[in-house]
Amino acid sequence: MMNTAEPLIEIENLRVQFTQKGQKAFALRGIDISFYKDEIHGLVGESGSGKTVTAMSIMGLLSKPAAKLLSGSIRYEGKELLSLSEDELRRYRGNKIAMVFQEPAKYLNPAFTVGEQIREVVRLHMGLNRTQADARAVELLDLVGLGEDGRVLGAYPHELSSGMKQRAMIAIAISCDPDFLIADEPTTSLDVTLQLQILRLLKRLKNMKRMGMLFISHDLSVIKEIADRVSVIYAGKIVESASMARLFWHPMHPYTRLLLMSIPDARRRGKRLAAIAGQVLDAREDPQGCVFAPRCPMAKERCFRESPKLIAHEQGHMSACHFAEEAWNL
């Protein structure tokens, strides 16, 4: 499913640098990515590759002054978010763009009930009165599958199981009908059976509300369950972006190809899993060529000299590799 409409959120050449104790680190080295309404966009990458920094940039929640924006633009329905003031941004957060976090236990306020936390948000953004907010809270809990248990509304976070907590957090996130939802590894801290339930819930909500979604994970097999489109991020750069099916069957970047080979598969039982040799590019380095070149088995002299651009191939398949056509032979 390729979207031809205007993107909901468009990020262009986003470069973010962190400075800590005088050390400079390149968190994002020029991210280009577009998100569309009614589409789940999976973002996959190793830890430290810049997934969460990308999400936080969209939310405008990068911790300053440690994080410095070097260049780039983030547009929401054509409106530049990076030039908005904190007050203006606050009207987007939670209202137009919302976020679900990795560990629900840490991201719910322990001092208030689930109901109170939902009410707070809807009263803030939707201007509802107490009774309306109450009704909205009940409706939302129903939507995320916590409706049957009447206790949840008045329950404190510690009284809920982790699956229920994640559902509650999702309810809070979607409480103002956002157009765009960022889910940052929402299932990583849950066990496998719960993971699937949460993935199904997110998918159902996306279909119902027609919202765009950025689904961040380090796990390709989780992305495979939910995403319509997948982008692969490596060392602060999008190296490949394609529809789910294309990415899995016809990867056009050697990194993606190697990632796919490292997923355990019943058909390859007994064989050793492929591991990618070498180490992730040090964030302090700023190479002239391709960020993946030092680990790439098919790297040529050109790769170290010239940084590949993210180029569109057929069917909206984007790849940042000089030898994109050859990657799947790897």
Partner: peptide, 14 residues
């Protein structure tokens, strides 16, 4: 630095 403060900020809480 707790998560729920970050979550509150992500929800646009003043």
């Amino acid at each position: 630095n707790e998560g729920f403060i970050e979550a509150a900020r992500a929800l646009g809480t003043p």
